[in-house]
Amino acid sequence: MSAIFEVENLSLHYLTRFGNKVHAVNDVSFTMEQGEILGIAGESGCGKSTLVNGLMGLFIPPLHPTSGNVRVGGESLMNRSPKDIRQNVLSRKVSMIPQGAFNALNPVRKVKDIAADVMAAHMKDMDRKHIYERLKERFDLFGMETEKVLNAYPIQLTAGERQRSVIGISTLLNPQMVIADEPTSALDVTTQKVVIKLIFDLLEKGIFSTMIFITHELPLLRHVADNIAIMYAGQIVEKGTAEQVVFDPRHPYTKALMGAMLSADEGQKSRKPTAIEGAPPNLANPISGCRFAERCPSVKPDCKNKEQVIRIVGDRQVRCEYAE
């Protein structure tokens, strides 16, 4: 099968209010095949959210592409105006599920009107009545009271219903690619499970099949993703299958991340989660050498001077020359 989503050496920067360049994403490459779910994990500030905008080709100042390319089904998303991207790419080819469902829904409009607008923008010849019928069919899949949810204002819904509505609206046009940016981080564990179930349902019913799932919860990715990429300071430091990354991490940073995890399993209480001391480097300054060197528990003398590149260890990619 051929790749449906290709990212080649993508680097992105944004300008701060003081005019400084922050290189938030650096040399990110990966390809995804039809039906693949890729998880991207990392601490806050590692460039995950900046990457999301880059992957959609949506460059609204102060965000700018530095170099690289993003292609969906062979079509490049670079060097296109936000208007062009919004009209021709978003919703249909690439769709995003945002983190804060509340901010994503216009508070003064009913859910059905918000959803109908999305459909109407892409199906100009369809009348409202047909649009509402299509909506009802789709929302019936979500395990909620369809009529109640569609006729409600966002504030009248629970957090879970809101997030499910947002997912419903984002996937109305059966996009080729879905990018979910921390879709469950603001929810409690029970609601999180409900939302993930919905995503799995939609996958099963073929509403969409390829997804990038971004989160800082590695254990969640183990259940959601096929492959996992770990980001640190704007770079992918390790990428492999979910099992590999979670149970057999190779990069020192991934190891440290797994060490910080907690578990309610029996006998785990004695195992102390260890925090990673220090903070990621400031991406506004030029960085020489490995970006994790300052905090790395197994740092070698030359790490601080030598920039690390992705290399293949076994059947996975690791950005550390000492990883085995």
Partner: peptide, 10 residues
């Protein structure tokens, strides 16, 4: 409901 790495979840 906790997505634990060692247990079946969904």
């Amino acid at each position: 409901d906790i997505p634990d790495v060692n247990r079946e979840w969904i």
